[in-house]
């Protein structure tokens, strides 16, 4: 069959460039992380030959388990805060008139595309001992001269929520937009209070959006590195900071790889969930469509 062969041929021609590129530069390097974990470090900061469990054993080193636990815990708190803020926003955005909705959407998207470093830096300036917020709090009598806002776990959480909130708002809004708001009215007609109607109809109705939001915020949070590096202190270090220190400070790539392998495994669990979810809906498409 000539047509069939031609179709196969054009499929391969269109697929191969991106397929080979990602196979070589995405999948292979990712697998390499796991392989390098079992390699020794060479004295020049490269990767030695032979195999060893040395890097794997550094993972049980006294402070790593605490840092891994903190990474998961901080990511969970940041994700929860994002979802708590994004849910009423999704509800509001789905109900307002289209003109105002376009404005709100644009306002949600704009900071999302502005420089990540600039947005973190903006908070560093705001939280600085001589900055705006410290002066405001001191003026209100809520902070003393020696209260430190910067380099704390709270600062890390605040900035994580700030940078990741749009990732929660967009999928929740996308789900809320498809929700039939008459269900809420029906529940109220049947005697439910506003809150009860909201919890028993709206939340289950946007379930997929909530789950997507959770994953979209939780996964990048686990990999946070710049935020704790700039606004955090020694007591708010996350796995990402340790990966960077092993890579750039001690120049021990196998140790960095071992930590990254842990991170990859931590990400894999929610990622499998995301791919299962994708079969039902395609929230990322919505995100990208709205995002541009």
């Amino acid at each position: 069959m000539k047509g069939q062969t031609r179709r196969r041929l054009s499929e391969w021609v269109a697929t191969l460039p991106s397929f080979v590129w990602l196979l070589l530069l995405f999948l292979l390097p990712t697998l390499l992380v796991f392989a390098v974990t079992f390699r020794p470090a060479d004295p020049y900061g490269g990767i030695g030959s032979g195999w060893t469990l040395a890097s794997l054993l550094t993972l049980v080193n006294a402070h790593y388990p605490a840092i891994i636990w903190r990474t998961i815990w901080l990511s969970l708190v940041a994700t929860t805060l994002c979802i708590l803020l994004a849910t009423p926003m999704g509800y509001y955005m789905a109900r307002i008139n289209p003109a105002r909705r376009r404005l709100v959407l644009l306002l949600v998207i704009l900071p999302f595309w502005t420089s990540f470093l600039v947005r973190i830096f903006a908070w560093k300036v705001l939280l600085h001992p001589e900055g705006f917020i410290k002066h405001l709090l001191m003026f209100l009598g809520l902070a003393g001269q020696d209260t430190s806002l910067l380099y704390t776990t709270q600062a890390v959480l605040l900035v994580m929520v700030y940078t990741e909130l749009p990732f929660a708002i967009l999928p929740i809004y996308a789900a809320a937009e498809k929700f039939d708001f008459r269900l809420i009215e029906a529940a109220q007609d049947l005697g439910a209070t506003s809150l009860k109607a909201f919890v028993s109809t709206f939340l289950p109705g946007i379930r997929v959006g909530l789950m997507t939001a959770f994953l979209m915020v939780f996964i990048p949070s686990l990999g946070s590195y710049v935020i704790p590096d700039i606004v955090g202190g020694p007591t708010s270090e996350m796995i990402g900071n340790k990966i960077a220190q092993r890579t750039f400070v001690d120049r021990n790539l196998p140790n960095a790889a071992a930590l990254s392998a842990v991170l990859a495994l931590a990400v894999l669990v929610p990622m499998i969930a995301i791919l299962t979810l994708r079969r039902k809906e395609s929230p990322r498409d919505v995100l990208i469509e709205e995002g541009v």
Binding site: E11, W12, T15, S18, F19, L22, L23, L25, F26, L27, L28, P29, T30, L32, V33, V36, G46, I47, L215, M216, I219, P220, L222, G223, Y225, G240, I243, A244, T247, L253, A256, A257, S260, L263, A264, V267, M271, I274, L275, R278, R284
Partner: peptide
């Protein structure tokens, strides 16, 4: 083929940047 292709295209969107950064450095090194 397209199912595999889609998986390959999709994964970089969800993986933390630091993982991609380190993995590429290991690859080049």
């Amino acid at each position: 083929l397209q199912k595999l292709h889609y998986g390959l295209i999709y994964m970089p969107l969800v993986i933390p940047e630091i993982l991609m950064g380190l993995s590429l450095q290991l690859f080049f090194v």
